[in-house]
């Protein structure tokens, strides 16, 4: 039996686990996440700092120039610039030995690109939502349970046209189809698809390690002179239960706020559109935790 096995056997029998500091030093991030999850807030802070170091989250924030909006908005690009700025945030992490890695960002005072935010800026009216039908109603769910618990026997009277249970559709409010948005709010439609379709995260890595590359767009009021970025990173690890039913994963969540300074001077913080590590931004630009 080697030394590691002896340590684990001792830990299992005495109830004392391996040192969290040692686990993260050896890059056993999954194990450290569960140790921190079950431990104290101090454990979560210590492990979280180490995980941040492994993940090496890098960010870039870019303020879209009016000229870059012209292919989408034509002559309306200048008036858009007078009403709002479009800001893109890009992020990338290393590929780390965890089961889940989620990154989310927000710019304080800014709105993520949504139909209502874009229409407010372009000054367009949005098509009204409309009523559709759906069978996914609470009543039908209850009726479905009734069928399940009666082993289907309550449906038998339906065979002789005397139904006890009938599934009926309910009304549900749905968005107008995309072509309606294009017809009624063409500028918001163009901006929406150019930004929302390019937003989101894609996974990096495979074979038990994971990382992410993400992109978000925000609508920032021209009155906002400075930008503060709130960054949330969640690391997760699956429990090992030996059972078919998945257990709740262990999680360590981290939140960091970074003052990026004047929005119209983001080029100075991110010269040549270079992504910068979050740790560097916190140290050199300014942090508000």
């Amino acid at each position: 039996m080697n030394a590691r096995a002896l340590v684990l056997v001792a830990a299992a029998t005495t109830g004392c686990g391996p040192s969290l500091r040692g686990l993260v030093a050896d890059h056993h991030d999954r194990e450290a996440i569960c140790g921190a999850h079950d431990g104290s807030s101090g454990d979560r802070a210590e492990v979280g700092r180490a995980l941040d170091g492994h993940a090496g989250l890098a960010l870039e924030v870019y303020s879209v120039r009016p000229g870059e909006l012209e292919p989408l908005l034509g002559d309306a690009a200048a008036s858009f610039a007078g009403r709002a700025r479009l800001v893109r945030v890009s992020a990338q992490t290393n590929i780390v030995p965890v089961d889940g890695l989620a990154v989310d960002v927000a710019i304080v005072g800014a709105t993520p690109v949504r139909w209502d935010a874009l229409a407010a800026v372009t000054g367009e009216r949005l098509p009204a939502r409309r009523w559709g039908t759906t069978y996914a109603t609470p009543g039908n769910v209850l009726k479905g349970l009734g069928v399940l618990f009666s082993f289907g026997t309550v449906l038998l009277p339906s065979l002789v046209d005397r139904p006890i249970i009938q599934f009926r559709p309910g009304a549900i409010e749905v968005d107008a189809p995309d072509h309606e948005y294009r017809r009624i709010a063409p500028r918001a439609h163009a901006l929406y698809h150019a930004t929302v379709d390019a937003s989101g995260c894609s996974a990096l890595g495979s074979g038990g390690s994971t990382g992410v590359r993400c992109r978000w767009f925000f609508v920032v009021s021209p009155a906002a002179s400075t930008a503060r970025l709130d960054v949330a990173v969640t690391y997760s690890a699956q429990r090992v239960t030996g059972r078919y039913t998945p257990a709740e994963p262990c999680m360590v969540a981290r939140r960091t706020s970074v003052e990026l300074g004047p929005i119209d001077q983001l080029d100075r913080v991110f010269p040549a559109n270079r992504m910068r590590p979050l740790a560097e931004l916190v140290g050199r630009v300014g942090a508000a935790r």
């Binding site: 090496g56 590929i95 150019a194």
Partner: peptide, 26 residues
């Protein structure tokens, strides 16, 4: 679409466990 300059980023590092991962806290 929006033709924006792509951000430049270093190639992501791959962090690997130094040995087979222990299973205690999990």
């Amino acid at each position: 679409g929006l033709d924006l300059p792509e951000p430049s980023a270093p190639a992501p590092r791959v962090i690997v466990e130094d040995s087979p991962g222990p299973v205690y806290y999990r």
